[in-house]
Simulated scan of single mutants.
Amino acid sequence: MAGLIEGLPSGLRGDYAGLGADLTLAQDMAGYAPADHATWRSLYARQAALLPCHAAAAFREGLDRLPFAAGIPDFARCSALLRAATGWVLVAVPGLIPDAAFFGHLAARRFPVTRWIRRREELDYIVEPDVFHDAFGHVPLLTQPDFADFLQAYGAMGETAARIGALKPLARLYWHMVEFGLIREGRDPRLWRRHPLLRRRDAACDRGRCAAPAALRPAAGAAQRLPHRSVQPTYFGIGGYAELFATMPALPALLAEARDAAPIPPGAAAPGDQPL
């Protein structure tokens, strides 16, 4: 089992003992206590109240199609809905998994979702992704065909990135696009997805105090280091989802360039950055 999770940080909270060869395990819906579902509902209510002002329309539409309001969702039920819409399914994982395995699942239209949920005292912030982070934050956009197709193509890029030693830049770019990406709707930049770690006091989300995002440049995103334990200082944005596919042909060369370049510190501007 140690070889399957080589390279992951020590002390992760998930139960990695029962992993299969593909690094998945059973969700075990019966293992969730009533308090776990109550925590989900508290998180859902808080985030849902912020969606009209801050989340992209495609995210809100996708969320409306999923059985998320009542408590921790059953992955099998969600997978049936996603499979009919875009051919995706959800697979349960204990938490973080190595980049190569993660991108391999995306390439096969399987989205890994952590099965455990945070404690009540962690409603505002949690370092590791939990089931709410993964399901609420990512799954709604998988109902949208354009985004679903892009994410599969991005996952397929993992094989190329592994071959040229550029998995880290591919993961960095995923962070800046899929974890914290913005899209322009009208005059406003909105989150592609509603990141569950962001709060009203996050400078990137407060109306009137929005951090000035830069237009997406894959080379800059792939080189920018990730601020895992602080508020996100840099946001990259797009004008529409079609721009995502436009990044794909040049991505192998850009990943190789980022692999060999000095990483850009979190929040620092790169040459050529333009306001969104």
Rank of each mutant, 00 (worst) to 15 (best):
D188Y: 14
D273L: 13
L90Q: 08
R119A: 03
R41W: 00
R110W: 12
A57L: 15
F59W: 10
A84P: 03
Y44L: 05
V131R: 00
F111R: 02
P169C: 00
P213V: 10
V113W: 07
R119V: 02
G267E: 04
R209Q: 12
L173Q: 05
D124M: 08
P73G: 01
A204V: 06
I5Q: 10
P145Y: 01
P52E: 00
F68D: 06
R187W: 14
R194G: 09
Q47K: 15
S79Y: 07
Q152P: 05
A38P: 03
G239L: 00
L66G: 02
L19T: 01
G186C: 11
L251W: 08
I264S: 07
L170F: 09
P266N: 04
A171Y: 11
L23V: 03
I5V: 15
A166C: 07
D206W: 12
R83M: 10
W116T: 09
P145W: 08
R217Q: 03
I5H: 11
R190N: 07
H133T: 01
A215Q: 13
A76Q: 12
T114F: 08
W192F: 15
F75M: 14
R172D: 06
A135T: 08
A148Q: 01
G186R: 04
G62V: 03
A166V: 08
R46N: 11
D130K: 06
A219S: 13
I126P: 00
Y154T: 05
T114R: 09
R46K: 14
A100P: 04
H133F: 07
L123F: 02
D134A: 08
F102T: 08
I164T: 08
I97F: 10
L12V: 10
I164R: 05
T39L: 11
A55D: 02
P265W: 07
V139Y: 09
L66Q: 01
A108N: 14
L81D: 09
H138Q: 04
L254I: 11
L123N: 03
A48E: 14
G155P: 03
V139E: 09
I238G: 03
D99Y: 14
A76K: 13
M29P: 06
W192E: 00
A108Y: 09
L197D: 12
F132W: 02
A214I: 10
A17D: 13
F150R: 07
A204D: 11
A222H: 08
I183M: 14
G20T: 09
D36I: 12
G14Y: 06
L142H: 02
A268Q: 00
H195M: 13
V231H: 12
W116H: 13
P233L: 04
A85K: 00
H195F: 14
R118K: 11
